[in-house]
Design a protein around this nucleic acid. Sequence first.
DNA 1: TACATATTAGTACCTGGTTCTAAAATGAAA
DNA 2: TTTCATTTTAGAACCAGGTACTAATATGTA
Lengths: 186, 186
Amino acid sequence: MSKKERQQKLLQTIDGNPFVTDRELTRQLKVSIQTIRLDRLELGIPELRERMKLMAEHSYDQVRSLPPDEIVGDIVDLQLDKSGISIFEIREEHVFSRNGIARGHYVFAQANSLAVAVINDEIALTASADIRFVRMVRLGEKCIAKAQVRSLAGRGGKAEVDVFTYVVEELVFQGHFVVYRSAVEE
Amino acid sequence: MSKKERQQKLLQTIDGNPFVTDRELTRQLKVSIQTIRLDRLELGIPELRERMKLMAEHSYDQVRSLPPDEIVGDIVDLQLDKSGISIFEIREEHVFSRNGIARGHYVFAQANSLAVAVINDEIALTASADIRFVRMVRLGEKCIAKAQVRSLAGRGGKAEVDVFTYVVEELVFQGHFVVYRSAVEE
DNA sequence: TACATATTAGTACCTGGTTCTAAAATGAAA
DNA sequence: TTTCATTTTAGAACCAGGTACTAATATGTA
């Protein structure tokens, strides 16, 4: 493998998983750790901790600068174990090309992500869900999902989260999620 | 200032700025660094790097939405209006970085895609669904989703599709989908 | 005065690096 | 084949921001 190829692969790998350490990269690319570090230097890729810091700052800024009605990012408001709001714009790649209607799983994914994000626990996984697609969502529409934590069992229990998704003022989706939460590491 | 008061202030300070180091905290609270660390220990506040890592993972997991693929999973068998089988392998990009467990919406997306694909109609949209994540799916596992059409109203009506997803022989997901079908172009 | 609690000090050690120097391997041109 | 540049590897010193542990000293209070 040439240097160019390796650096290409390095970029891809780190892009696919930014939490990878140099040591893990040596195993994947079969070169010494010094080479990895020279490559990162040449490519301008910061070290793991710096990458995590940048991501953390970015998300922190996002949640901080909560623009009341402006549409910017994904999660615009998050009160752990209480509520959250996320915004998702339906684009080309989310719709059936035939009719411009959003595929259900994108609308679900937004709600599911939010339901999981709002639960303040190391591990939060969806256990079950009861969902209803109230009306079709079309290309270009902005889905505003609002989550409310309804009940919250102690650590290691289950939480119930209701999510309502609106386009402007109109309800397009509703879901009742049971989220499994646990601090255990299995 | 009492211990309680100080710990209260510590919580507030870190909450207000999670990127603060212990050294900076000593300056603000006028106690030794050991006291700061004992306080963090008692309050269960992780160290700066761990805090940043958690934030980064949280936002990263959140940001990762579904791939812009038309259909999630490979459909390997399809008998329109009857049944279908799709295979989907859980890879890096589908799991929570922290624990390698698949995000629920991918498993849902596979089932949803299949439920829609199995309906032989110009437009087929998910109307509602009742789903259950039976067990967690892990990195590298192959999900085999099997769909069965249960009932089929005439054109313009609703169809009911059951999807069961397995890893090897083990059931990991089950869902009952109500799919809206229509030849109308609205 | 005695005792418990709280605080401070100091050391060894950890991860995941940076920075620097230097040796070895590899490849291509003369 | 020799020569030279590039590439790769190695190793040591050092860094931030900690943890874990031991031990000494303050401080309040009964």
